[in-house]
């Protein structure tokens, strides 16, 4: 598997380290991976939500 490096602010990286330990992740990488996956899933979900919202919005009573 290919790996890519990502730059993070030092402050943020410190927080990541701190909270990943607190939340019981085995490593900061695992924590970051999990966070990103969750966010992406949310976006993918909201795609179809967006579609449904558009369909509902044709109703004159709402905007």
């Amino acid at each position: 598997m290919g790996k890519a490096k990502i730059k993070l602010d030092k402050d943020l990286m410190d927080k990541v380290k701190k909270y990943s330990k607190m939340a019981g992740y085995s490593s900061p990488e695992e924590f970051i991976n999990h966070c990103l996956e969750k966010e992406i899933a949310k976006l993918e979900e909201s795609d179809s939500e967006e579609e449904i919202k558009k369909k509902l919005k044709g109703l004159g009573y709402i905007s």
């Binding site: 558009k54 369909k55 509902l56 919005k57 044709g58 109703l59």
Partner: peptide, 10 residues
Amino acid sequence: TPDILGSYGI
């Protein structure tokens, strides 16, 4: 009754 897109009308 929806329009052909299945919406209230677009």
